[in-house]
Design a protein around this nucleic acid. Structure first.
Lengths: 124, 124
DNA sequence: ACTTGACCTCGAGTCAGCTCGAGATTGTAT
DNA sequence: ATACAATCTCGAGCTGACTCGAGGTCAAGT
């Protein structure tokens, strides 16, 4: 099963413009039909979903590009790719811890507001 | 105790340029000396640290600006400010859950690589 | 034959969030 | 007095990640 850019766009909820941009950035390289139109496969689908996950976890496009290029080379880059993911995993878990800390802080601040507001009401 | 922009910059590890940019964006409004130079106070310090936390948790500058403007108005905006923080807290906890999910996914992928690499080695 | 709709390329525009530099002023050290 | 370092304003430039539009192609339907 293959998809036109329009179908693919709807499927993964990324604009056609963005898909072409990602291709230009060498994140994804769909096949072309004889008439020059892009032709996305199932494996492009799983691949772009993975890309989105990397993006959502804050990996910059340049970094994803590196990964994509290694992937294109093949099995010889397995170790390098894994290392890149492990590095990213570390960044990610640090980020999560950070956010959790901020969350606690935010909760304290909110509590502080609650108290302040209650006291103001009692004053009136 | 007050600080010049240079001292303050070193203290909080933000460039002088960035501090002036934040001021222009109305996030922070330091006093001025008669000669026109900025003069940051202790309370500016705690405030900017809070700003950084909001930024680190992904709040856009425009949103922080809203908060800063309400803060400048005073106690009348307590409830609104609290609501803004509560809204932000929700966004934040959704984001954390999301990242945790991605983390699991990433772990699976890494495991997959480990297996693939081991098998390749055994093949040789 | 002709319109329509989905596609193509390429270059430019947008937005957030800085980052930089020119040119002027001011305060301290020699 | 003079040099120097830190500050000031203002406007321009930069990076990342899209986003848009003009002008052209191509295949299917009427």
């Amino acid at each position: 099963m293959t998809y036109t850019i329009g179908e693919f766009s709807r499927l993964i909820n990324l604009s056609i413009h963005t898909l072409r941009y990602y291709e230009q950035q060498e994140l994804i390289t769909p096949q072309r039909l004889k008439n020059g139109r892009r032709c996305y496969s199932e494996s492009d689908l799983t691949w772009i979903q993975f890309i989105r996950r990397l993006k959502d976890t804050g990996m910059p496009i340049k970094e994803i590009q590196k990964y994509a290029k290694m992937r294109a080379v093949g099995d010889a880059t397995l170790v390098d790719r894994m290392e890149l993911l492990i590095k990213h995993r570390q960044i990610l878990s640090r980020e999560i811890m950070n956010l959790q800390e901020h969350q606690v802080n935010l909760d304290n601040k909110i509590d502080y507001y609650k108290t302040a507001i209650t006291e103001r009401i009692e004053d009136n």
